[in-house]
C-alpha cells in the first residue's frame, strides 16, 4: 500500500528510466495448496547507459523478472514503470512500450524462427514500429543493422535461414533484432551461455559497444560472476526469489557479504586452484 502512496511523488523523478518497483510474482503450484514465490519484493531502476547484472542460480527468479519486464507475465503485486509511468497492459500504448524495451534470449537456436529468413526477423520490428530514418528504405535499415553487428556481406546474410548460421552469428542477429525498433532498454537473458567459450567475449564486447553507442540501459542476466563484473556497473545477487546482495560490481565481487555470494564466488573456476577439485574427488575415493 505504501508503494501506491509513493507513486505520486516519484512519478516526476523517473524520466528516462525503467523502474521495477516492489514486484512480487507468485505461481500456483499444481496439486498443492501453497504458492511458489518466484520473485519476492524486488526493486531496481535501469538507467540509460548503465548496466545492472542479475546473478543467481537456476530457478532463482531471474528469468521471471525478465518476463515481467517484457509484459509476458503479470506481477502478482508491484509495478513496472517506464519514465515514471506504469507500463500499459494492452493496445497501442503497449506497442510503444515494446519499441523501448527489447530482449536478447539465451538460446540463439530457439529464438529465431527456423522458417523465416534473417531479413524477415529484422524487417518485422522495423515495420511494426516504423523505425526507419528519414529517406531510408527498410532494406537499407536492415543492412545498417547487420553491419552494426558485424554480419557481412549483408545481402547474403539477410537472405539466409537461421540454420545456415553459426551460434555466434545467430546471437548477433538476435541482438540486431532487439535494436531494430530503436530501443532504449535491453534485457539480455544469459546472452552468451549457449555460445562457444571462444566467441563469448566477442559477443559481449559487441553488446558493450552498442550500449555505449546507443546509450542503452541493460539488464544483464547471468550466472557467471566473471562476465558480470566485466560487463556491468552494478550487481544484484538473487537467491530463491530474494535479492540477497546488491552493490557496485567490484564491491560485490571483492567484498561479498552474503553466504550465497561467497559460495558462488568459491564455485567460479580459478586458475590458481587448477586441479584442486580433481584432487578432492580422488581423495574422497
Amino acid at each position: 500500500m505504501a508503494t501506491l502512496n509513493e507513486q505520486g511523488t516519484k512519478a516526476n523523478s523517473g524520466e528516462g528510466t525503467l523502474e521495477f518497483r516492489n514486484v512480487v510474482k507468485e505461481y500456483r503450484v499444481r496439486g498443492a495448496h501453497k504458492k511458489l514465490r518466484a520473485v519476492n519484493d524486488v526493486s531496481f531502476t535501469l538507467e540509460p547507459g548503465k548496466t545492472i547484472a542479475l546473478v543467481g542460480e537456476s530457478g532463482s527468479g531471474k528469468s521471471t523478472i525478465a518476463k515481467t519486464i517484457l509484459q509476458l507475465e503479470r506481477p502478482t503485486s508491484g509495478d513496472v514503470l517506464i519514465d515514471g509511468k506504469s507500463v500499459p497492459r494492452r493496445g497501442r500504448a503497449l506497442k510503444r512500450y515494446r519499441k523501448d524495451v527489447q530482449m536478447v534470449f539465451q538460446d540463439p537456436f530457439a529464438s529465431l524462427n527456423p522458417f523465416h529468413s534473417i531479413g524477415h526477423h529484422l524487417e518485422r520490428p522495423i515495420r511494426l514500429h516504423k523505425a526507419v530514418g528519414a529517406d531510408q528504405t527498410v532494406d537499407e535499415r536492415i543492412a545498417e543493422l547487420l553491419t552494426r553487428v558485424n554480419l557481412e556481406p549483408v545481402e547474403e546474410i539477410a537472405g539466409r535461414r537461421p540454420h545456415e548460421l553459426s551460434g555466434g552469428q545467430r546471437q548477433r542477429v538476435a541482438i540486431a533484432r532487439a535494436l531494430a525498433p530503436g530501443s532504449r532498454f535491453l534485457i539480455a537473458d544469459e546472452p552468451v551461455s549457449m555460445l562457444d567459450v571462444s566467441i563469448r567475449l566477442g559477443v559481449l564486447n559487441l553488446l558493450a559497444r552498442l550500449q555505449r553507442e546507443e546509450n542503452l540501459g541493460v539488464l544483464y542476466i547471468t550466472h557467471d560472476l566473471a562476465t558480470a563484473r566485466h560487463f556491468s556497473d552494478e550487481i544484484m545477487v538473487m537467491y530463491r526469489g530474494d535479492v540477497v546482495e546488491r552493490g557496485p560490481s567490484d564491491e560485490v565481487i571483492l567484498n561479498p557479504q552474503h553466504d550465497y555470494t561467497k559460495r558462488l564466488l568459491a564455485a567460479a573456476p580459478d586458475p590458481d586452484r587448477l586441479g584442486q577439485m580433481r584432487d578432492e574427488v580422488r581423495r574422497a575415493l
Binding site: 530457439a110 529464438s111 522458417f115 520490428p125
Partner: peptide, 26 residues
Amino acid sequence: NRDYVAASRIAGENPFRVIGVEVLPN
C-alpha cells in the same frame, strides 16, 4: 513456449500474426 514466439510477441506482433506467420508454417 518457443523463444521465437516470445520474441515476436515482444516485437509487438498481434496474436493473429503470431499464429499465422510464426506458428503455422512450423
